[in-house]
Design a protein around this nucleic acid. Structure first.
Lengths: 198, 198
DNA sequence: TACATATGTTAGACATTCTAACTTTGACAA
DNA sequence: TTGTCAAAGTTAGAATGTCTAACATATGTA
C-alpha cells in the first residue's frame, strides 16, 4: 500500500497527506476517515501529520479548501460556453454543482455538508462567497442588472437551495431508495426556468 | 450526569439508550456521537448496549426511525389545517420539513443526511415512502388527479429538492456565513408556487 | 564546519468500539 | 414456594484511533 520511502524526510508530506486524505474521504466518506489511514497511505508514522496540521479536522479542512477551488474552476468553465445572463448559463452552473457533487461526493459532503463550523473560518467563507458570487453575477445579468441588489439576492438563493438539495438527494441515493426515475438534466433546466419566472 | 440506579436491571434500557442517543446526537452532532457517552448518560457499562443493538450504527438508526415517525406526525398535522391540494397545504408541508430540520438538526441529519445506507434498509425505505407519499398525494390533488402518475412524480420531486436544500443550508448556517438575509417563510411560499406553475 | 530548525520517529497516555466470560435477577414450571 | 434458565447486566481486555512528549535526523545558513 504505502510505498516505503528511502529518505528520512518525505519531500512534501503536507501535500502527500492532503492527497491521501482526499482519496480516503472519497473512498470511505468523511466520517470514516482516520488519520492513521492517511499515514499508512503516505508511508509515515502516525505522529508525522501533527507537524503540518493542528488535528484531524484541519486535515479535512485542507481537502475541503482544495475542493472549493476545484469547484470554482468547474463553475468558471461551465459558464464560459454560454452568453452571460442566459438561462443556459445559469443552468450550466447548476449542472457543475451537481457534477461536483456526484463526481466527488466525499469532498462535496466536506464542503457543503458537515461544514457548520466553516462559518467561523475566514478563508472558507471567502471561498464560499467567491463561488456563490458567480451565481449572483449571472442572475444579475439575467435580470438585466449590472450589480447585485436585493432582488438578485432573493432570486438567486432559491436556485442554490434547489441544486443543493438535488445534489444531496442524488449522492444519498434517495431516488434509488424510493424507486424514483427522473431525468436530472431536464429537471434542472425546467425548474431553473420556473424559479426565475415571476 | 448519569443517575446511579439502584437496580441491577435498568427496566427499559433500550428506550433509555435511544433517548440518550437522541439527546447526544442533538447536542454534539451525529458524527461526534459515541456509545460511551450514551452509556454514561444512561448509567450503564459500555458493554450493556450490545444486548440491545448490533453496534453503534444500529443505535443511530433507531433514533432515525423514531425521527422519521415524529416527522410524519408533523406533516400530518401541517396539512390538517388546509384544503387538500391547495398551494397552502403544500407550502405547509414544506414548512414542516424546515421545522423538523431546524428544531432537531441532529436527527434531521441522521434521517436525510449521512443516510446513504438506509437505501438497503426496508423499514427505513418504507418510512421514507410513507412520508414522501403525503407530498405526492397533495401534489396529485393540486393537479386535480386522484392518483399519483408520472406527471405528479415529476412535479413533486423539485419541491423536495428545494426544501431539502433549504433545510441543509439553514442548519449549516450558510446564510449567516455569507451574510445573506432571506425571509424563509416568504421564500418557501413564493418558490413552491413557482415550481408548481407551468 | 557547526548549529538551529524543520520534520521525522518511537513510546505511550487515554479514549473508543466491541467481544468473551462471568454475575445477577426475574419469570415461570413444578 | 422454590429451583432453574434465559435475559440483561458487569468486568476485563483486545484492537484501533487521536494526540503529546521526548528523541533523532536532515537541511540550510552563519
Amino acid at each position: 500500500m504505502a510505498a516505503k520511502r528511502a529518505n528520512y524526510h518525505h519531500g512534501d508530506l503536507r501535500a502527500g497527506l492532503v492527497e491521501a486524505t482526499r482519496q480516503l474521504v472519497e473512498a470511505n466518506g468523511p466520517d470514516r476517515f482516520s488519520v492513521s489511514d492517511a499515514c499508512r497511505a503516505a508511508g509515515v508514522s502516525t505522529a508525522a501529520p501533527y507537524r503540518h496540521f493542528e488535528d484531524r479536522d484541519e486535515m479535512l479542512l485542507a481537502v475541503c479548501a482544495e475542493g472549493m477551488d476545484r469547484f470554482h474552476d468547474l463553475m468558471v468553465k461551465a459558464q464560459a460556453g454560454h452568453e452571460p445572463g442566459t438561462l443556459e448559463a445559469i443552468t450550466a452552473l447548476g449542472q457543475s454543482y451537481i457534477q461536483f457533487a456526484t463526481s466527488e461526493p466525499g469532498v462535496f459532503r466536506l464542503c457543503f455538508g458537515i461544514a457548520r463550523e466553516h462559518k467561523d473560518d475566514n478563508e472558507m467563507v471567502e471561498r464560499g462567497m467567491r463561488n456563490y458570487g458567480i451565481v449572483l453575477s449571472q442572475v444579475a445579468a439575467y435580470f438585466g442588472k449590472d450589480e447585485v441588489d436585493d432582488e438578485v439576492l432573493e432570486r438567486a438563493f432559491p436556485l442554490w437551495t434547489m441544486v443543493h438539495g438535488l445534489s444531496f438527494l442524488l449522492i444519498d441515493e434517495k431516488m434509488e431508495a424510493l424507486n424514483l426515475d427522473h431525468d436530472v438534466e431536464a429537471m434542472l433546466r425546467d425548474n431553473t426556468r420556473r424559479l426565475l419566472a415571476d
